[in-house]
Computed example of a mutant assay.
Amino acid sequence: MQKILVSFLVSLSLTGYAQKSGNPVFKGWYADPEGIIYGQKYWIFPTFSAPFDKQVFFDAFSSPDLVHWTKHSRILDTTAVKWARRAMWAPSVIQKGNQYFFFFGANDIQSDKEKGGIGVAVASKPEGPYRDYLGKPLVDKFHNGAQPIDQFVFHDKDGKYYLIYGGWRHCNIAQLKDDFTGFVPHADGTTFKEITPEGYVEGPFMFIRDNKYYFMWSEGGWTGPDYCVAYAIADSPFGPFKRIGKILQQNATIANGAGHHSVIKSGNDWYIVYHRRPLTETDGNSRETCIERMYFDEQGLIKPVVITTEGVEAKKIGK
């Protein structure tokens, strides 16, 4: 009987059914991960987590099953973006036609007098190499008090594309032009509309489920134990967004500072991709990328995410 059980477990492992990703899902210090599906692969585009002056490039990771990850090194760096010199952060990558547009923050500007902000790069493949699309930042000023960082590109069900972004406790939404070279003013004549919910700090993300707009963000300090993810639900990408509560936070027995996330829907399964800091680490830049399952209750509310060291089971796209 014992031999049969061992044989069965080995068979499960070989076929991938018993495999799990483990957390972190790949080696190295990486943060602010955007997870997305292109073709038959899962992709994660993270920030290289290091002192700001060393954040001069982006790596990417791809996987057929959420378990086995391939690293794509330096898909974009400061040699391709002449105006960027440091603090390259929080990629958001969107496919339009046969091209992939890579939105990123650079230079951590502290005022309108500094050069930097949110840029755009473009490539013919998800893994790049990417080249600077505009030759200058797309957003280089503080609008409504929002630092131009932590950009997320949202493709609405009506075909419109929006840039949702902002640090310093302010979040803006702006409609992108079809060619991503600028913005289309809103009906009231403004370009950057503030949609900041209670508790917002940074790291916005949005998705649609059952015709409702789920808006998520990070709260607390990125180097502290209070870093977490909260959310709201509305009938429009413009809100109003009333904070419902936290759904991702640290577990003092597993890891600290769980936050700045993204969401992947694969078939009927939902996943949250996020970063956290191991208990053994005191350096704020020692952040690792992890994945967990994300569930909803009968009312459509997001259940609190349980952070683990095991990660998620293998799942191929379309299965």
Score class of each variant (00 low, 15 high):
L5D: 11
F8R: 10
F8V: 13
L9M: 14
V10E: 10
T15R: 06
A18W: 10
Q19N: 14
S21G: 08
P24N: 14
P24Q: 10
V25W: 05
K27W: 13
A31V: 15
A31T: 15
P33M: 15
I37A: 04
W43R: 11
S49W: 11
L66Y: 11
I75M: 03
K82G: 10
R85C: 14
A87C: 12
K96F: 09
Q99W: 12
F103D: 01
F104G: 00
A106M: 03
A106K: 07
N107P: 02
E114D: 07
E114H: 05
G117I: 06
P126H: 02
Y130M: 04
R131C: 09
Y133T: 11
K136E: 02
L138W: 08
V139Q: 03
K141D: 06
P148Y: 08
H155S: 07
D156A: 10
K160T: 15
Y161I: 12
Y162H: 09
R169F: 14
A174K: 08
V184P: 01
F192M: 00
K193A: 00
I195K: 01
P197S: 08
Y200H: 02
Y200P: 00
E202W: 13
E202I: 11
G203H: 10
M216G: 04
W217S: 00
D226M: 11
D226E: 14
Y227G: 00
A232R: 09
I233F: 04
P237T: 15
R243Q: 14
T253I: 05
N256G: 13
A258T: 15
I264P: 01
K265P: 02
K265Q: 15
S266Y: 11
N268E: 14
Y274D: 09
Y274L: 05
H275E: 02
H275F: 02
L279Y: 14
S286E: 15
S286V: 14
C290E: 11
I291N: 03
R293C: 08
Y295G: 02
V305R: 03
I307A: 02
T309R: 00
G311I: 05
G311H: 06
E313P: 04
K316F: 12
